[in-house]
Write a protein that binds this DNA or RNA. Structure first.
Lengths: 111, 111
DNA sequence: TCCATTTTGGTACTTTAGTATGAGCTACTT
DNA sequence: AAGTAGCTCATACTAAAGTACCAAAATGGA
């Protein structure tokens, strides 16, 4: 308040700043964590399969039944890029085609 | 046996024949019943979607990640027939493509 | 800064998938 | 017997998917 001492105002400012930074930090963290469940189990499993975060993201879209073009539009990428990711996924999951990849991913419980 | 009467042999033959037919009948019946789980829940759901038994069978193979050709070989059918079944499934499940059909089928808990 | 990985994208092809249409055959129902 | 639904298969296309190979940015550490 206007009648408050300078010290009080500084403390309030510091507290506000700290919470602001906490807010920024948590938000930034959430952007990464949200890719994978809180447990991080999936991230561990995909890591062991050498599946990159982007590839995993594409895998989830494939499992939703989207076409390469639809995934490309959704993630703001070219269809060419999606094909690359899917092709890499097939190798890493040892799948013959995308439907097979979906089945394997379910078996491994990574989606 | 050689010492048996003609009547006895005829009776044995008839009994054998009857059991043979029972065996054939039960086997044929089992081929149909085994298509769906004992509960019949899936059969009810697929019926409401107007999905035929054969189509449902193909759907399960699609979900396993098999190609049309592989499904054809597994079920001793032509690839052409599988295409027809899959095409009909897409309409009945309101799916754009087979991966989409898999996702929908999971949602409906019919596979 | 240098290195390794990831991400992105392109071209050129081959292979699967999917659609449209027609047709014969069987089994069940009215 | 006639109709209906299900199953089978074919031909002829169009559309996706997938492969192979290459290459330029971006990213994140060592």
């Amino acid at each position: 308040m206007v009648t408050g001492s300078m010290d009080t105002e500084i403390i309030i400012a510091i507290v506000a700043f700290v919470f602001f930074m906490v807010g920024v930090y948590l938000h930034k963290k959430s952007l990464h964590v949200d890719q994978f469940p809180k447990t991080g189990v999936n991230r561990e499993k995909t890591k062991s399969l050498e599946i990159s975060p982007r590839e995993y993201e594409v895998l989830k879209e494939v499992a939703l039944g989207l076409s390469n073009k639809e995934i490309a539009d959704k993630l703001f990428l070219s269809e060419s890029t999606i094909k690359t990711h899917v092709s890499n996924l097939l190798v890493k999951l040892n799948a013959k085609r995308r439907t097979h990849a979906i089945q394997i991913a379910h078996e491994l419980k990574i989606i």
